[in-house]
Amino acid sequence: MLKTVTTWLAIIATATVFLPLLQPAKAQSIFESDEVALVFCAYVRDNQTQRLQRKLRDLRIRLRDIYSHIRCNNATLIQFAVKNRANDIGRFIARSVNLNDLKEVGDYQWMHEQNLLDSPIGETISARFNP
C-alpha cells in the first residue's frame, strides 16, 4: 500500500514538473500580429475612427501601447492617414499617442519636412508639441 502511494506521488510530482513543458507554444502576441496591423491600416485608410476604437476595446489594448509597432506601407499610422486624407482618424491617433512615441517614430519631423503642419492632422500634432 505504501509503495503504491509513493509511486503515485512520484508520478504526480513528475507530471507537475513536465506538464508545462508539454503545453503548446503561446500564440503570437497581439502587438506583433500582422492580421491586427492590417485591420488597423484598413480602418485608417477608410477613415473609420469608430471601428478602430471598437477594435481596440474588443482587443483590450490601447493605441499608445502598439503605435510604434504598426506600419502601413512602410509608414506610421499618422503618415498613412495623411497620405489617404483620413483626417478624422489621423486627429484621433495624434491625440491618443504619447508625445515621446510621436518623436521616436518621427511623425512630427516628417510632418514638418513635408510642410504638412497646417493640415488638420498637422495642427493637432503641432498643438500637442507647442501648447
Rank of each mutant, 00 (worst) to 15 (best):
R91F: 04
A25T: 12
D46P: 04
L77Q: 01
C72A: 07
F80N: 00
V97D: 03
I125S: 01
K3S: 14
Q48C: 06
R95N: 13
L77A: 04
V82A: 03
V105F: 01
E32N: 15
T7W: 08
N74L: 10
L116K: 03
G122E: 00
V44R: 00
A27C: 09
E104G: 08
Q50D: 14
T124W: 03
E113D: 13
A42T: 14
D34A: 14
T16I: 12
A75V: 04
L38V: 13
G106Q: 05
G90S: 03
T16S: 12
I61C: 02
Q114K: 08
Q79N: 09
E32W: 11
I78T: 01
F92I: 04
D118P: 03
S29A: 13
I89R: 00
L99M: 13
R71G: 07
I11Y: 01
K55M: 14
P120A: 00
T124A: 09
F129I: 09
D34K: 15
Q53L: 09
V17W: 03
I125C: 04
V36W: 01
A37F: 07
A25R: 15
A25I: 10
A94C: 06
C72W: 07
Q114A: 08
N84W: 00
I125H: 00
I125N: 02
I30P: 06
A81G: 04
S119A: 06
R60I: 09
V5H: 10
R57C: 11
L77K: 01
A27T: 14
A37H: 10
L102I: 08
D101L: 05
I11A: 05
D107A: 05
A42G: 13
L117K: 05
S96K: 05
T7G: 07
D46E: 14
G122H: 02
A86H: 01
D118E: 11
R71S: 10
G90N: 03
E32H: 15
L59S: 06
A10C: 11
I66S: 03
A86T: 00
D58I: 11
F18I: 01
I93W: 00
R64I: 08
Q23N: 14
K3R: 15
H112R: 15
I93D: 02
R85H: 06
E123M: 12
Y108K: 08
V82F: 03
D58K: 14
D65W: 06
I66Q: 02
D107P: 00
S96E: 07
P24E: 08
R95F: 07
R85K: 12
R51K: 15
R128Y: 08
N74H: 12
L52V: 06
N115I: 06
D88C: 05
K3W: 13
P120N: 02
L77R: 04
Q23I: 10
I89W: 01
F40P: 00
A94D: 02
N74K: 12
Q79T: 05
L19Y: 13
Q114N: 09
Q50Y: 10
I30L: 12
L52W: 02
L38S: 15
N130K: 14
M1W: 12
P120T: 02
K26P: 10
G122K: 01
L56I: 08
A13V: 06
I121W: 00
Q79P: 04
R45N: 08
